[in-house]
């Protein structure tokens, strides 16, 4: 029926491997720019203040921002799918309030932690379900989640509740010595552990690759037969879980629960992710970039602390400025790619 096909000789393709590699390198460009920015800032700091150039100053960036690192990890998953989660700051506060209250009532710290993780993950799962099944913008759903979580904080207590329980205070004071008279807190190890797991999940599991695929082209991902719905719901559950973990880490750090805590922390998390090179439209970015984004935010604060004449509000202005620069960079990359 069909004539034997004659194999026509291969046409030479226009795209040479070398050029591909070059253009493929562009996907690391935003993240590399962030790394460069961080190194430059560190170098400037070292030039201005001799004590800046110390291992402990670097490690303190981690110690002071464990919770933000974990938040940024969860946010990276959400943003990679093209979504957004505004509830994270409020969920952090809720987690702190719940643990502080329950610890005050003499609960076992292990049970408290498990319960807090369940609440955070559950809230996230709920938001994911609403987003997916009712087709409402993530922005609005997570905004409602933010109201809900913050409102629950107020319901629990309007006052700050101190944490005096042994395990939490122990975690707050514990230092893990490193060679060279340096140390980190246990929270840092936990946060870095979570980053490692997230990296593995994003780059070495089908779930992680589906997250990227959804961000690249949700319709295609669906047509390729990938589990789009489940993945999108799970991403919000993960973000809720990360918020709960961040809440516990923040409790270790601040040893209290306060309903107004972590205000605007969702903005810091989003800023860290964007500055770390993740596209807000989804599909491109790295969880390690988000960590560098957190470090950049941290170093801005360190700078201001070292300077002494600069006031704390410069942090917000600088973060806003960095956000702007990176958003404009992203537009530029997007235009080039398109």
């Amino acid at each position: 029926m069909s004539p034997l096909s004659t194999l026509t000789p291969l046409t030479v393709k226009k795209s040479s491997p070398a050029r591909n590699r070059l253009r493929g390198g562009a996907r690391y460009a935003p993240t590399l720019a962030t790394v460069g920015l961080f190194i430059a800032m560190f170098a400037v700091g070292a030039g201005m203040y001799p004590s800046f150039l110390s291992g402990q100053v670097f490690l303190n960036l981690f110690i002071d921002n464990t919770f933000l690192i974990v938040l940024a990890v969860g946010m990276t998953f959400v943003i990679l799918t093209g979504g957004i989660d505004l509830s994270v700051g409020a969920v952090v506060a809720l987690s702190m309030m719940v643990s502080a209250t329950l610890l005050q009532q003499g609960w076992n710290p292990g049970a408290v932690i498990v319960l807090v993780l369940l609440i955070g993950g559950g809230l996230g799962l709920l938001m994911g379900l609403v987003i997916q099944y009712f087709d409402i913008q993530p922005f609005i759903v997570t905004l409602a989640g933010m109201f809900l979580a913050r409102g629950l904080c107020y319901v629990i207590s309007l006052d700050s509740i101190p944490v005096t329980e042994g395990f939490f205070t122990g975690m707050a004071q514990a230092q893990i010595p490193l060679p060279g008279d340096l140390f980190v807190s246990p929270g840092v190890l936990l946060a870095l552990g979570i980053v490692t797991v997230a990296f593995f999940v994003l780059h070495h599991t089908r779930f992680g690759r589906t997250v990227y695929a959804i961000g690249g082209n949700e319709h295609s991902a669906m047509l390729m037969g990938l589990p789009v719905k489940a993945t999108k719901i799970l991403v919000y559950a993960l973000s809720g879980l990360c918020s709960a973990i961040a809440g516990i880490l923040f409790s270790f750090y601040s040893l209290s629960g306060y309903s107004l805590a972590a205000q605007g922390m969702e903005l810091d998390a989003i800023a860290a992710v964007v500055i770390g090179g993740t596209l807000l439209t989804g599909g491109t970015g790295y969880v390690l970039g988000s960590v560098v984004g957190v470090l950049v935010l941290g170093i801005v604060q360190t700078f201001i602390a070292y300077d002494g004449t600069l006031s704390s509000w410069w942090t917000k202005i600088v973060i806003g400025g960095l956000l702007l620069v990176f958003i404009l960079l992203q537009r530029l990359f997007a235009r080039k790619a398109g």
Partner: peptide, 26 residues
């Protein structure tokens, strides 16, 4: 520039409060 509205106004949302604090000196 064609930035999504939510992102575009996020910049001012973040930096604006800092600017206000700058004006009042905190």
């Amino acid at each position: 520039i064609g930035v999504q509205p939510i992102i575009a106004t996020l910049v001012l949302m973040t930096a604006g409060r800092g600017v206000a604090q700058l004006i009042t000196g905190g």
